[in-house]
């Protein structure tokens, strides 16, 4: 359905790894210089990065818009809320994370059979549809999920049975997030992603040189879902609270918007996008509380019209290359 504009996907080189290292160093030392509240914002940003990376992979490699990251964040969050909150089974991260990972992989794979049946517009709206179905189920199954009240009083997590302090949780989130970034960078440089780009470029040709198109598309969707599922657990622990709003389609759209703000022509995109979106959200809602939706909506719309999917990182790249030419 797309008259795809040409879009070059960068390759991971030494520069990327050095940037990742610098980024890690910054987020490691930053908590010592900022307030506790700012640290929670930072933590939220870190946790958003893997989900935005999922959107990024589907967008930059397959040219698909993935509105459904909220499904998996919601699943991870509610698993945590049940296990560490409502039913008090366990608050052990080493149990909850693998559990959420397995659940999101299974759900993503099964959903992928249906919603990856067609691509483009249909894939996008099926993403929205699934998350709304989850929303309505959680909203209505009041006895189990607490309905619109959600589930609060989630216990603080423990790691290998050692309870984590707030600071401890921050560093754990940091490790997970950076770990996923490194994994995703490797995925982006693998033959897997080369073949995904082939599928996006010309589906018939890809099929006729033996690429199992449907299965690879589904796997990409599953990887995105797994990323979000893991962060769902940590987000629930960060807020100590879960409500059906994690399944709202607008929440899923926020990850797409983050990816667009950051840009999909650079690996730094998801990181810039996640932090950019969260800070934008924070500042606008403090100063122009009512105008939050209008401002963010218009911002994204204008970014898409003017620079397309290049986003902030794309603009910076263009500026740099112009300077270098002169």
């Amino acid at each position: 359905m797309n008259t795809a504009l040409s879009m070059t996907v960068p390759s991971v080189g030494r520069r990327t790894w050095i940037t990742t290292l610098i980024f890690t160093a910054i987020v490691v030392v930053l908590p010592f210089f900022i307030s506790g509240y700012q640290r929670t914002l930072l933590q939220k940003g870190l946790l958003w990065i893997p989900s935005v990376f999922g959107v990024y992979i589907l967008y930059s490699l397959l040219r698909q818009v993935h509105f459904g990251q909220s499904i998996f964040i919601g699943l991870g969050s509610y698993i945590t809320a049940f296990m560490a909150g409502k039913y008090s089974v366990t608050n052990e991260l080493m149990i909850l994370l693998p559990l959420a990972l397995v659940v999101s992989i299974v759900v993503a794979y099964v959903l992928g059979i249906f919603i990856m049946k067609r691509t483009g517009f249909y894939f996008a709206v099926m993403g929205i549809a699934v998350t709304m179905v989850f929303w309505s189920l959680v909203y209505k199954a009041r006895t189990i999920t607490g309905g619109s009240d959600g589930i609060s009083h989630i216990k603080n997590p423990s790691l290998f049975t050692v309870p984590l302090s707030d600071m401890g949780l921050y560093y754990f989130c940091l490790i997970v997030s950076v770990g996923i970034i490194v994994l995703m960078l490797r995925v982006l440089n693998s033959s897997f992603s080369l073949q995904l780009r082939a599928i996006a470029g010309d589906l018939e040709k890809a099929e006729s040189i033996g690429i199992p198109v449907k299965r690879m598309q589904r796997l990409a969707f599953t990887i995105a879902g797994a990323n979000a599922g893991i962060t769902g657990v940590l987000l629930a622990f960060s807020y100590n609270y879960v409500s059906p709003s994690v399944f709202e389609w607008g929440y899923g759209a926020n990850f797409v918007q983050s990816a667009i703000i950051g840009g999909v022509t650079s690996f730094a995109g998801p990181v810039v996008g996640a932090f950019g979106f969260i800070n934008l959200e924070f500042f606008i809602s403090t100063w122009f509380a009512n105008l939050w939706e209008i401002i963010i909506g218009l911002t994204i719309a204008i970014i898409v019209v003017t620079v397309g999917e290049k986003g902030v990182t794309g603009i910076v790249q263009t500026l740099f290359s112009k300077i270098r030419c002169k």
């Binding site: 797309n2 818009v65 759209a253 918007q257 939706e293 209008i294 218009l298 719309a301 898409v304 397309g308």
Partner: peptide, 13 residues
């Protein structure tokens, strides 16, 4: 792809 993202953002507006 652009249309979907931009118009879904317009819904927010």
């Amino acid at each position: 792809v652009h249309r979907m993202i931009a118009t879904s953002s317009l819904l927010m507006v």
